[in-house]
Nucleic acid binder design. Sequence first.
DNA 1: AACGCGACCTGCGAGC
DNA 2: TGCTCGCAGGTCGCGT
Length: 317
Amino acid sequence: MPELPEVEVVRRGLVSWVRGRTITSVDVLDPRSLRRHALGPEDFAGNLEGARVLDVVRRGKFLWMPLADTPAVSADAAPGVALMAHLGMSGQLLMQDPGVPDEKHLKVRLRLSPAAGMPEQLRFVDQRIFGGLFLTSLIPTDDGGPGGLAETPLPLIAEEAAHIARDPLDPCFSFDDFYRRLRARKTGLKRALLDQGLVSGIGNIYADEALWKARLHYARPTDTLRRADALRVLDAAREVMLDALAAGGTSFDSLYVNVNGASGYFDRSLNAYGREGLECKRCAAAGRVSLMKREQFMNRSSYTCPVCQPKPRNGRW
DNA sequence: AACGCGACCTGCGAGC
DNA sequence: TGCTCGCAGGTCGCGT
């Protein structure tokens, strides 16, 4: 459920709590959350204990912490190692004091070196286990580093995130490159928006919101999409994400680094997602009645207004 | 290259 | 009340 804004809120919250601290011990309560760490829980814990967290950076929905002093990794093995986190659908990273009872879906606990006024534990909580933690190498990148609003962009990127494109809020995001690659594809617009290798950070909910805002249908072929249309939908995605970021930012300095997936979205009013059978707000404002429609696309729900996001007639857009 | 689909998971609500 | 079923959805990998 977390899309880009939620992950960025976590990153910003986390960085002030963990940067510079050393991981003193690791409890793996559910090894399924380490599925992507091929060498297993013991290797995971063994590499983390004694390591120091240098930063928290993000690319798309991937979040990682570059590490120093990883005990079991030889110095010449790679430019660096990072603790990677993906929140999947329901993942949370929480800072907690030791006295706080374990969360129902607590999967991994990291204890950190003491720091004045800061919680001792970083907990990974995940109900549905689509997310997870794992260690990854940092590899050189020639495109200016991870981006993703990282506070200290490094010329390195987590190997497992190297295939992820920049997101629309990234200062280095290039619309021209995006548009060129978009036009080269023979696919539908929503599929392209959800392709993290083309543009990152957009999930099912924000894709629907951006398409609605731009008055474009999810199946609009990308290979004939006009530049102005592509720009409109990208700008719409940017606006939706910035709104969400602003809303999430209000709780930055609370004790929690909270990524309750649901709270990110449903506290806000959505214009498209989840509004099946309800009036299209734009049509209503124009004095028309049009009911939002839900359809299956890519095995998931897509919400559109049949009036302002029309389907093709006779295959022509 | 594109695309569809299954796998990975748990919880919740609807319907019977 | 208790069961099943559909749905929620990010990512990866495989088959076509």
